[in-house]
């Protein structure tokens, strides 16, 4: 009665939005520890894309 891809997609979309949003708004100085890579922004976009794909599969 519940396709796991739907909650999986919603959760990763929310996590992706949180990370991407925080990545855009935060001071770039916080990325000194991640070797200068804006890891929140890039990984947030990856999670967002994964969440969207899962949501699509769950909806279908």
């Amino acid at each position: 009665g519940l396709d796991i891809r739907t909650p999986l997609g919603v959760m990763f979309t929310i996590l992706g939005l949180l990370l991407t949003g925080f990545g855009l708004l935060s001071d770039p100085a916080i990325y000194a520890r991640s070797l200068g890579i804006h890891i929140n922004l890039w990984w947030g976009l990856v999670l967002l894309a994964f969440g969207a794909v899962m949501l699509g599969l769950g909806w279908r």
């Binding site: 990370l19 935060s26 520890r33 890891i39 929140n40």
Partner: peptide
């Protein structure tokens, strides 16, 4: 603790 900034640290 060493490599992740806040945000990724939570993840």
């Amino acid at each position: 603790s060493h490599y992740f900034p806040h945000g990724m640290l939570g993840l």
